[in-house]
Simulated assay, not measured.
Amino acid sequence: MKKSAIVRRKWIVTSSVYLLVLLGIFMAANLGWLPTALLSKIPRYDLWGHFLLYGAAAYLIHRAFGKRMLRVGRFSLSLGISILIGLMVAEEFFQMALPRRTASLVDLAAGCFGILVFYGWGESRDRVARKKLDIKKSPRVK
């Protein structure tokens, strides 16, 4: 098996496990099982949660999908992140039907901002790694 296939499989497994954890967090929130007394000690914990949880999911999912992109007119969008945004919007709207939850555009914005930041960080990190690899591969000049 090629190294790239092994690496991609690791991303798929890691993001799948993470998404199961995320689903568990959503279910706990929907059922009122989150430790809100503890979480409320963190200022704006709900916004930070959306930012960090969706951001980390974007980082993992983009890699699990092999960084595949969708062409939409002149724009390219990450396939994995597009699916994640769809799920995020659906989850936020689903909250309208639940008595213990409230849908919020601010939460949605925090999630989107997290996705953008983590996507940008991941792409930047990959560019630096590629440059280091190119430097190692290039012949030395005296």
Rank of each mutant, 00 (worst) to 15 (best):
P139S: 03
P35R: 04
V17M: 10
A129I: 10
A56W: 13
F94Q: 08
L47F: 07
S138Y: 01
G55M: 04
I115K: 08
F94D: 01
A109R: 01
A110D: 00
V17S: 11
R63D: 08
V106Q: 06
L52A: 13
R127N: 09
W33H: 13
F26L: 13
I42R: 07
F93Q: 06
E91Y: 01
F65W: 10
A58D: 04
I85T: 07
S40T: 04
I135R: 15
L87A: 03
F75M: 10
W11L: 01
A37N: 15
P43I: 03
E123I: 02
P139Y: 00
V106D: 08
K131C: 09
Y18W: 14
W48E: 04
L84Y: 04
K41R: 15
V89H: 01
K131I: 14
R71W: 09
G24F: 09
G73C: 08
I6C: 02
A37D: 15
S78D: 14
V128I: 15
V72H: 04
L39N: 11
V21C: 12
K67P: 02
R140H: 08
K3M: 06
F51R: 06
S82E: 01
K132D: 11
M69H: 09
K3Y: 03
R63C: 05
K41L: 12
G32C: 06
G111V: 01
L116C: 13
Y54K: 12
L70H: 07
K132S: 11
I81C: 04
F51N: 07
K136F: 06
R9G: 04
L22R: 03
W48A: 10
I61W: 10
L53R: 08
I42N: 13
A37C: 02
A37Q: 11
F113Q: 02
L108S: 05
K142I: 04
N30G: 15
R130K: 13
L20M: 14
G66D: 03
S40R: 09
C112W: 06
I85L: 10
I42T: 11
S124C: 07
V128R: 15
S76R: 15
L77G: 05
S82N: 02
G80W: 04
F75L: 13
G32D: 04
P43Q: 08
M1I: 01
G120L: 10
L77D: 03
R101I: 00
V89I: 12
Y54E: 05
G111N: 00
L108A: 06
E91M: 05
M1F: 08
K131E: 09
